[in-house]
Design a protein around this nucleic acid. Structure first.
Lengths: 360, 360
DNA sequence: ACGCTTTATGCAATCGTTTGCATAAATGGC
DNA sequence: GCCATTTATGCAAACGATTGCATAAAGCGT
């Protein structure tokens, strides 16, 4: 059907081997035939068959990225970054969605290795350590965002302790002394690490830790809502909430809306990980950015490094990508009595009493 | 490195061919050897090499999905659906991101075909019709969401005329007679079709079309914001806005927030295509659902159909997936003077004066 | 027990590349 | 101009499966 190397060779009246060598640039070929062959190949529209090549070379030009889902904004940008980087290097990305499910992950992993992928970037569930360890012998693997403690795989992590610290410190610097924390389950690394960063910032500021202000839960909006209620129902509710559980943000926002709590006037809100709409929300939501882009890029770097020259132990097992604070409009200073500085009137509904004159 | 068919054959003291036949179930093999072989293969941990198989059979067990990006919520769910469906059939999904760019799309297409993908679902940019047409000879292709007019490819489309009609009619039924429309560029099919649905609903209701109420623009939040401003600055602004340009929603919401316009009290808002946070937003945003799930599923169905028995012309060239209205809280009836029915007091900021008692 | 049909196996070619080894051509030193 | 090198080419064997064809083994009727 399509043009094969044999066709090119015939057209050029040379053997298939010379054709191969000329076109791949491998080994000994005269300058002249090389150019001639390239020309002919182009004229004939020859495109090498990666499958045949793969059979021989054991490579597939396929790199897989295994993430939990695509609803998570971080995974989206990671997927986009990885895809873009790989494409530039003439690799194809196999995007797999594991749904944070051990079985699914396991199945996917075997299929991927069957397909002789050249490399794998995986957000591990942490439940297939043994398998990952075995596979790592056959194919370069880099873990992303989560560590699988059962393995000693190279891992690219967000700096959650630092991120949480940064965020909490920011709120403290704004004068908040009662900072609520809504954080992920404590059986996940990120959950634990973010809590630790929060605690450290508190300690540094000489603020006593108040467990009533700390709520951990699953990565779903419902959790955010229920935690927010608990926090707001406290006899002395927090003046700021740090939502360090990404998916929970929606729930928190709903509760504040329901209760007519103005942000940042009545409550400062700081979230973790960016979402496209955070910037467009009113007020624009301040966040701690976990650096999804950087994470993905670094993961690709590391993977390529390993793939390139089969580099084994480089020594480094773990990379941390710095988090950074992005200040927008959802946190305010509170040494003043409240609703003094940025006091939007919040008048009763009327069509055009704009607080800021429209300008974007 | 890994167990090959030869190994299995040797272990079983049969030839490679019998091993092959026994394991694939093709052709003539005695019940007994078949079982024996399967057992031995399992014991040895044999996994067929898709590359080698592909070389012979011309198949790769790879199906590609080419979309514009992953930030679009519809594409996300489509990707998830396609991946899930394919995985169940033991195919791997190659997810490619074309960025709505003609060159990128073209490059990706060639690489994909090089890789001998078994099928392709593509959201075409519409600028590579010729190429698509050629490729379609080699591999089954189904277009998704957009049509490429230069081809006669089987295409699965959302029913945009109907969706827009449904949405507009809903608003009209609620008593709105001035319905603003923010719609996509008129050089896209969806842009044109949504406008037509809107117009039809208006006409049916005997409402004169007012072009001042219709704004078309690019698929970005900025467009939404500027269009919203134009609409709201009208001497007689609309009482409802239908944002039929998916990405524009964010911009519209920002403007209403800036201007302190209460939804749905001051303005009804209806959007197109769902976003995960629409449900959680206060008020929850009513939408016209384009049926991304159904679209993806149908596309997979059609693709599998074609792949299965190399079915060529089935006659049908175009499938339309019905849109449906999902009523939430962002649209209200307006025969009453306004702010009579669901009147949240919108009091000046205070911590716990909830309009509704917290309950989710 | 003999031929005839059916069924099960093996042989070897094939898919489109790459690559080690042998050979042919070119180069260069004298 | 001849021999030793270097350089360019071709042959053929891989890679790991599938598959047409030939053959061996079995089943069966008489």
């Amino acid at each position: 059907m399509s043009v094969t190397l044999k066709d090119v060779a015939q057209a050029a009246r040379v053997s298939v081997s010379t054709a191969s060598r000329a076109l791949t640039g491998t080994g000994l070929t005269s300058e002249r035939t090389q150019q001639r062959l390239t020309r002919i190949a182009r004229e004939l529209g020859y495109r090498p068959n990666p499958i045949a090549r793969g059979l021989k070379t054991g490579q597939s030009r396929l790199v897989a990225l295994l993430v939990h889902n695509l609803t998570n904004a971080s995974f989206q940008v990671m997927a986009e970054v990885v895809q873009a980087r790989l494409k530039a290097l003439n690799y194809q990305m196999l995007l797999c969605i594991g749904g944070d499910d051990a079985q699914a992950e396991s199945d996917t992993l075997t299929t991927l290795v069957d397909h002789r992928i050249d490399g794998l970037i995986v957000v591990p569930t942490g439940k297939n350590g043994a398998q990952l360890k075995t596979l790592a012998k056959d194919v370069p693997i880099v873990c992303l965002v989560r560590r699988d403690d059962a393995t000693d795989l190279e891992t690219v992590l967000a700096d959650d302790p630092q991120g949480a610290y940064l965020g909490t410190r920011h709120l403290i610097e704004l004068g908040h002394r009662r900072v609520g924390l809504i954080v992920g389950r404590q059986d996940t690394t990120s959950g634990r690490e973010r809590l630790s960063g929060y605690v450290r910032a508190l300690r540094e500021a000489g603020i006593a830790r108040d467990d009533a202000l700390i709520h951990a839960g699953h990565y779903v909006p419902e959790t955010g809502a229920s935690c927010a209620r608990k926090l707001l129902d406290l006899p002395r509710p927090p003046t700021a909430i740090f939502v360090a559980n990404h998916e929970a943000t929606l729930g928190v926002l709903r509760v504040t809306a329901e209760r007519n709590i103005a942000i940042p006037d009545d409550l400062s809100l700081l979230c973790y990980e960016d979402m496209p709409w955070f910037e467009w929300h009113r007020p624009a939501i301040s966040i701690v950015d976990n650096g999804a882009r950087d994470l993905a890029n670094l993961a690709v770097d590391r993977l390529l490094h390993r793939m390139d020259k089969d580099n084994g132990n480089d020594g480094v097992r773990e990379y941390r990508v710095g988090a950074r604070l992005i200040k927008r409009d959802s946190c305010r200073r509170i040494d003043a009595p409240a609703s003094a500085k940025s006091g939007k009137p919040k008048s009763s509904p009327s069509k055009s009493s704009a607080a800021k004159s429209a300008k974007v």
